[in-house]
Design a protein around this nucleic acid. Structure first.
Length: 826
RNA sequence: GCCGGAGUGGCGGAACUGGCAGACGCGCACGACUCAAAAUCGUGUACCUACGGGUAUGUGGGUUCGAUUCCCACCUUCGGCACCA
């Protein structure tokens, strides 16, 4: 069917052929199954509203970097592709889309360096990615490609922002942000790792800049509760819950002596209120600026805390520093006067930015009190002798003492009792705090979605009219961010200057752009309806396709991307633009593994251990690469690259190819043993492919081939075709060719998954172990449905077993049908 | 410190709801083919053994007729969070 130049050695540039040209070449002695045949890809298109059951399989879309698709992408996408192909053969209507998360700094930086337009660089990179993907045989529905930098797409990203603004979930605020002096950009908390910029690694500092902030904290509880409706693995759920960091406690109000003011704190231990001997406020707390600046040392301390970089804060974390504020507060429980201190160990962004300090029962407070000579007052009676001069007692065990009305209660009883006391005396109430912060949404960069807001002197911030969307990025000469922290857009007067949509007076556009996450928050909805100009996606189509059945992605996105996109989805849910019966976007989350270099180190250019898929395809062909990647280990594991092991897969493929060559066109009668092997293999692959156990699937393929040759290697082409079908998801090109050679009709990828004969899979006879006192003493072949007596009789005949039974009396015989028989001998 | 995984041959890794530990592949050894090498094909490959067996799935206990699998404690390691009151 396909012309194959058997003994030619020639070099072919595959890119010189149009995509989809039916062609297979052979070079250097073996086949390369990478050129595309229409049949191989023909069934990739998802059909809206088709009557077959739908399956939405999604792998995180990539950032199309200039260095091209790397082996990690290849691994992840291949796994997803195997699964998608398998599901298609199961008769599912599979949506398996791909797109480009193309806004972002690397492209912008590259554009600056080379003096080219980011738009052009992006177009080039995405074309390369696409070509590489097709070469890997990835059966994405390329007609549904979504590009976050396409104005037709980001029109809706902007629309979502306007809705957030309208619902009061986006506001502009001057706030201290993490600033990367190298990238010249503000960073979200989560983009700062150990005080360094996540992207470039330089140390960050703090800066006050007016920022758009999105109130993700309003959804904190929903984001936790919603996890119950998903099938995420424990690790992912835990990471999200951990990240949100919900803690329950109480707010308590302290009066300030000599001022008509209260100082409110958050605590998870209201029971320890009677032991609070001082208070601490963050240097950034409003009370400090209002009342304390005259106190000696305060101004200096506040100034130093402000200029401290995050690095310094982390380094200095062991030695707490502080200064007395000059203020005194009244402990509402003891009515004693207690000092108020200022220290940067109290975070301005958590709780109320102020704490009540209980040095007897909180280690940080203990550290601070010890250093500054503040009273440490125990209020929980510990069972054994506890040296309160050495450490705080922080266990939730013990009996309350010195605590007035809650004396004698256990800690667990005391917490609600203390809250009730606070309520009764109007000094506080139950409260919840979160580690999760609101989401800083501004970036001072060019290559991102413009934030569609207009500032008017008289009307304030006004959203751009929806009819004006998208607000497109203007062409600019220079992409460099400015030192003032403004985005390059600020210099384009004709773009910045506009009129207020509300009053018609002159006004200015927001020049900040959105963070990278914005485009990836909702892309999965757009795949359902990629070209809609009226809504972000058609409701009926969403009802058909959502939720995503499997979402395959990296663990590094378990907190940020996954949380942000769930939040945006929940927000869209509240707007009513996504289906009412789909409260969560992702039903199941699959983590993919990481491929390390041959030296067991993370791949990086500087280490020189990078494996490039294109080179491997040139040398071994797509199918060998795919099968090897799937064979390396469990789909979610961390694995080292081993090119020797890849050769084992190559040998397997060649041996299978030889089998196909020799059996094609024959009419051999397939021996029963071989037939059974084939049916068992199909059965096993059916299980493995549907459970992402690709490594054992490949092992089974190899095992089956070994078995066939052990039994003489004569197989009827019709039986062999079954095997080819089961191999097809993993080795799509080879399977297509073999299918044709063996007389298969149409494309193997459009064929229905073969049905197995249960009688062949589950044989009548089975070999089981014979144990004496749990030790293996022999095996015996029995009929699957033999009763205990029959098996017992037969087992006792086995010589070695008989010998062991003679050493004592048989007290008990345990027979597990078709599994094992065990004699208890004493 | 808190949360979540993982520890199995020389190596990557198998083992469904407790039932023959080490599938499959790599590596290694020997053999066939070859003048020779490569490639290919075949055989073997956990450890000890007085050849009867015995010991082995990080360590120590426990449950069970039987534990890689379940329970408890500990060790190591990877990932996430961490001055979050």
């Amino acid at each position: 069917m396909y012309q194959v130049g058997k003994n030619q050695s020639k070099s072919i540039d595959i890119f010189s052929f149009p995509l989809n040209s039916p062609f297979i070449v052979q070079l250097e002695g073996f086949y390369f199954y990478y050129l595309l045949k229409e049949e191989t890809m023909a069934h990739r298109h998802a059909k809206d509203f088709d009557s077959r059951p739908k399956k939405y399989v999604l792998a995180e879309f990539p950032y199309p970097s200039g260095s091209g698709l790397h082996i990690g992408h290849a691994f992840t996408f291949t796994g997803a592709d195997v699964y998608a192909r398998y599901e298609r053969m199961q008769g599912k209507n599979v949506l398996f889309p791909i797109g480009w998360d193309a806004f972002g700094l690397p492209t912008e930086n590259y554009a600056i360096r080379t003096g080219r337009k980011p738009q052009d660089v992006t177009a080039e990179n995405t074309a390369t990615f696409r070509r590489q993907m097709e070469r890997l045989g990835l059966s994405f529905d390329y007609e549904r490609i979504v590009d976050t930098t396409d104005p037709k797409y980001y029109k809706w990203t902007q629309w979502i922002f306007i809705k957030l603004f309208e619902k009061g979930l986006a506001y502009k605020q001057e706030m201290p942000i993490n600033w990367c002096p190298s990238c010249k950009v503000g960073l979200a908390n989560e983009e700062v790792v150990n005080g360094n910029c996540e992207r470039c690694g330089s140390p960050t500092s703090r800066r006050r800049i007016s920022q758009w902030v999105v109130k993700i904290t309003d959804y904190a509880d929903r984001l936790i509760d919603g996890l119950e409706q998903t099938n995420f693995v424990e690790k992912v759920k835990a990471a999200q819950i951990n990240w949100i960091g919900r803690s329950e406690g109480a707010r308590v109000r302290f009066d300030i002596v000599g001022h008509d003011r209260e100082l409110e704190v958050f605590t998870t231990r209201p029971d320890t209120l009677w032991g609070s001997t001082f208070m601490v406020v963050a240097p950034e707390h409003s009370l400090v600026a209002e009342l304390c600046l005259d106190q000696p040392g305060v101004k200096e301390y506040v100034e130093r805390a402000r200029t401290k970089s995050d690095m310094e804060r982390v380094e200095l974390s062991y030695e707490k520093t502080g200064v007395f504020s000059g203020l005194t507060a009244i402990n509402p429980a003891t009515e004693e006067e207690i000092p108020v201190w200022i220290s940067d160990f109290v975070l301005p962004t958590y709780g109320t930015g102020a704490i009540m300090s209980v040095p007897g029962h909180d280690q940080r407070d203990h550290d601070f009190a010890s250093k500054y000579g503040i009273e440490i007052r125990p209020i929980i009676k510990t069972t054994d002798e506890w040296d309160f001069s050495q450490a705080a007692y922080t266990e939730h065990e013990g009996i309350m003492v010195n605590s007035g009305p809650i004396n004698g209660l256990t800690v667990k009883e005391a917490i609600p009792a203390a809250i009730k006391w606070l309520n009764d005396h109007n000094k506080g109430e139950t409260s919840v705090s979160y580690h999760l912060r609101d989401w800083i949404f501004s970036r001072q960069h060019y290559w991102g979605e413009p934030i569609p807001m207009i500032h008017c002197e008289s009307c304030g911030w006004v959203p751009a009219p929806v009819s004006d969307l998208p607000i497109t990025l203007p062409d600019v000469e220079k992409y460099e961010p400015t030192d003032t922290g403004e985005s390059p857009l600020a210099n384009i007067t004709e773009w910045v200057e506009t009129t207020c949509p509300k009053c018609g007076e002159p006004a200015k556009r927001e020049t900040d752009t959105m963070p990278n996450w914005a485009g990836s928050d909702w892309y999965f909805l757009r795949f359902v309806d990629p070209n809609n100009d009226d809504v972000l996606a058609d409701m009926e189509k969403l009802k058909y396709w959502m939720p995503i059945d499997v979402y395959i992605g990296g663990d590094e996105h378990n907190t940020l991307h996954l949380l942000y996109s769930r939040f945006i989805y929940q927000f869209l849910y509240d707007l009513g633009v996504v289906p009412a019966d789909v409260p969560e976007p992702y039903y199941r989350r699959m983590s993919h593994g990481v491929i390390l270099g041959p030296d067991n180190q993370r791949m990086s250019k500087s280490r020189g251990n990078v494996i490039v898929p294109d080179v491997l395809i040139d040398e071994y062909g797509t199918d060998v690469l795919r099968a090897y990647m799937m064979f390396m280990g469990p789909f979610d594991a961390t694995m080292a690259w081993n090119e020797r092991a890849l050769l084992g897969v190559k040998r397997f493929l060649e041996r299978f190819e030889r089998l196909v060559e020799t059996q094609a066109g024959t009419h051999s009668e397939t021996p029963k043993e071989i037939k059974a092997l084939i049916h068992k293999a199909v059965d096993k692959l059916n299980f493995d492919l549907s459970n992402f156990k690709f490594n054992t699937a490949v092992a089974k393929m190899m095992e089956t081939l070994n078995g066939i040759s052990d039994h003489g290697g004569a197989v009827n082409p019709a039986d062999l075709r079954m095997l080819v079908q089961a191999f097809a998801p993993i080795m799509p090109f080879f399977a297509e060719e073999a299918w044709a050679k063996l007389g298969g009709k149409g494309s193997v990828h459009a064929s229905d998954w073969p049905e197995v004969d249960p009688a062949l899979v589950k044989e009548d006879t089975v070999e089981i172990p014979i144990q004496v006192n749990g030790k293996l003493r022999g095996t015996i072949v029995i009929n699957r449905d033999d009763d205990q007596e029959t098996v017992d009789q037969a087992a006792r005949q086995v010589e070695i077993v008989a010998k062991h039974l003679e050493s004592g009396t048989v007290r008990k015989v345990i027979y597990i049908p078709a599994k094992a028989i065990n004699y208890v001998v004493k």
